[in-house]
Write a protein that binds this DNA or RNA. Structure first.
Lengths: 115, 115
DNA sequence: TTGCATGCCTTGAACCAATAGGTATGATAC
DNA sequence: GTATCATACCTATTGGTTCAAGGCATGCAA
C-alpha cells in the first residue's frame, strides 16, 4: 500500500525508460519529469528509482551514456543501443501478454482460447 | 528476472484471486489451476504464491474461509466479504489506471490528458 | 547570502513473487 | 500390497525491485 505510486509497478520503470529513449537521448532528471508528465501523474517515479535503472541498463549494454555540459551544467545523456532496442521489443511484448491475460480474467471470458 | 513468470506481476496475484472469487467460492488448489487456465498459461502461479495471498486476504477480512469435506477430501473454500468486494473494486481501478498510463507512453501520445 | 530549481548519486528498509521444500489422503497401476 | 500420481494443504527462505530519505554540487533569483 504505497502512498505515492499504486502497486502493479514491477518492471514498469525499465519499460518506460527504454520506450522514452527510443524517441531520442535524454538524461535522468528529464526522464523523471517525462514519466510524470506523460502518464498524467499516474506514475511518479523518484530519482532514486530512475538512476539505478539507468545504471543497470547501461551495465547491461542496453543504453549508452555520454556526459555533456549544457549551460554550465553537467548532464549524462543516454541513448538506446541495438541491444536496448531488442530489450524494449521484448518487454513491450511481455507487457502486452501479461496485461492481456489479466484483462481476460477481469472481463470474465471463461474460455481457454488458443493463442 | 524471474524464470517462470514474466515481470509485471506486482499485485497481480491478489487481483486475480479476488476477481475469481467474485464468481463464487473456490479453494486454493482450484484457484491455482483456474489462474493458469483462464490466462492461457501466461500467468502460472505456484501454490507457494496463492496460499500466502489467501491467508493475507483472510487476515485482512477480505475473504472468509470455510473448511468442508468433499469426497473424503478436506478443502477450504473461500468467499468474498463485502470488504473484499471493495478491495477488488479498488484494485481493478488501480490496474486500469496504471496500465492505461503505461499504454499512453507506449503508444507515444504526447499529451497530458485530463482524467 | 539565502533560497530554490536543476542535476547527479547512494543507502536502507520494505514488500512481494518465486523457489523449494514438507505433510497427508485417495485413486490408479504394477 | 505397494509404489506412484494427483489432490490438497502449508511454511521458510531467497531474491529482486520499488521507495523514501538522504547527500553533494551548480546556477540563478530575491
Amino acid at each position: 500500500m504505497a502512498a505515492t505510486n499504486p502497486s502493479f509497478m514491477n518492471g514498469v520503470p525499465e519499460l518506460l525508460v527504454l520506450r522514452l529513449l527510443r524517441n531520442g537521448e535524454m538524461y535522468g532528471y528529464q526522464l523523471v519529469q517525462a514519466i510524470r508528465d506523460e502518464t498524467g501523474e499516474v506514475v511518479n517515479l523518484g530519482e532514486g528509482v530512475v538512476y539505478p535503472v539507468l545504471h543497470a541498463l547501461e551495465k547491461a549494454g542496453a543504453i549508452i551514456g555520454h556526459r555533456r555540459a549544457v549551460n554550465g551544467r553537467s548532464r549524462i545523456y543516454y541513448a538506446l543501443s541495438p541491444a536496448g532496442v531488442s530489450r524494449l521489443t521484448e518487454l513491450t511484448d511481455l507487457w502486452a501478454r501479461v496485461t492481456g491475460a489479466v484483462q481476460q480474467v477481469l472481463v470474465g471470458d471463461t474460455h481457454a482460447g488458443l493463442v
